[in-house]
């Protein structure tokens, strides 16, 4: 059915491809995928985190031959998946607290080692709050000790579960319940926030990668790569949140894609503290294309818009593009 021809219509951009052998398709295209998180969960319509978690865990389950246990921080993902009496998880899963998931995972990994069950692999998962803010202490410890855990941050850029408050990962100018678009500097302040992938890299752990729900194959490849390694590994996945971003539910993947194509979310991999690969921008767009679809940035547009703020955000994107060499000419920004 297949030939040696390199071009396959959709290549590996889509999840599957009838022209590819089944084992060359994504895990998500496999009818026998694990569905680590199954139907009936209470996530909002178009939830990027529910999607990201399934992408990551199904890939991890395949990579580990099914031998996965998961520790989950408090947050949307935990809440919408496990309201008594129903759980959406189909893998071994534990939730303890908001800020301790890295330590819980370290304990699990230690237990498995002591039990001689090291073939069972540990995945820890948390939102951005549980990762960059309240969970950072335990996470840094997990990194520093190089515990055999893959830690996955599903970054939706705020405390969505509690009603959309600002986190250390909320982008500049974004409206949240604690950074309202009022005053001279509407929305979240500039110059703050934690770049956790770089913080992780500073620990020189074996593997750090960023990814989004918009590039399934890339995400799955990174999970697979992470699972082929031991020690502390960190995967930072951008998962748009229709509720918190005030975006249309069908735009979840589109927004993740625009985040990468604008340069606001650089996609790269690093090993032992050194960037080893970046995903070049394929169809570069100005940041407006990304921002304008989100109600949390609506105060930047329209009659009382703030082109100066948009320009600052663009400068941030340009900085990313230059830093990670994401585009041939980082200075040139296309405008439609």
């Amino acid at each position: 059915m297949t030939t040696d021809l390199k071009l396959y219509q959709i290549g590996t951009f889509a999840a599957g491809n009838r022209l590819l052998d089944p084992d060359e398709r994504s895990v998500q295209a496999d009818p026998g995928r694990a569905n680590a998180i199954t139907s009936g969960h209470r996530a909002c319509q178009g939830c990027g985190e529910a999607l990201g978690a399934r992408f990551v865990l199904d890939a991890a389950i395949r990579a580990a031959g099914g031998d996965i246990v998961t520790a989950n921080a408090t947050g949307c993902l935990e809440v919408f998946s496990t309201p008594y009496p129903e759980s959406a998880w189909q893998l071994a899963w534990v939730h303890s607290l908001f800020g301790n998931v890295a330590a819980v995972a370290s304990g699990i990994a230690a237990a498995l080692k002591a039990q001689g069950r090291e073939h069972v692999r540990v995945v820890a998962q948390a939102g951005d709050g549980g990762t960059v803010d309240i969970g950072l202490g335990c996470l840094s410890g997990m990194f520093e000790r190089n515990d055999d855990v893959l830690f996955v941050c599903y970054d939706n850029q705020g405390y969505m579960n509690t009603g959309v408050q600002r986190s250390g990962a909320t982008p500049p100018a974004a409206r949240t319940a604690t950074t309202k678009p009022v005053g001279a500097e509407p929305g979240n302040v500039f110059g703050q926030g934690k770049d956790l992938p770089r913080i992780a890299m500073a620990h020189e752990i074996p593997y750090v990668a960023t990814a989004t729900v918009a590039d399934l194959r890339d995400l799955e490849r990174k999970v697979e790569k992470a699972m082929s390694m031991h020690g502390a590994r960190y995967l930072h996945v951008l998962v748009p949140c229709p509720l918190g971003w005030a975006s249309a539910s069908q735009d979840t993947i589109r927004l993740a894609r625009l985040a990468t194509q604008s340069g606001l979310f650089p996609v790269f991999e690093a090993e032992h503290g050194v960037v080893t690969a970046t995903t070049p921008i394929r169809q570069r767009v100005p940041v407006e294309d990304y921002l304008v679809l989100q109600g949390r940035f609506s105060h930047l547009f329209g009659e009382h818009g703030r082109p100066d703020v948009v320009a600052r955000i663009q400068a941030g994107a340009d900085h990313n593009i230059a830093r990670y060499a994401l585009a041939p000419d980082p200075e040139v920004v296309p405008h439609d």
Partner: peptide
């Protein structure tokens, strides 16, 4: 292309 199968947050 299996995209629909993959991208549904609700399986």
């Amino acid at each position: 292309c299996d995209n629909c199968v993959a991208v549904c947050p609700d399986n």
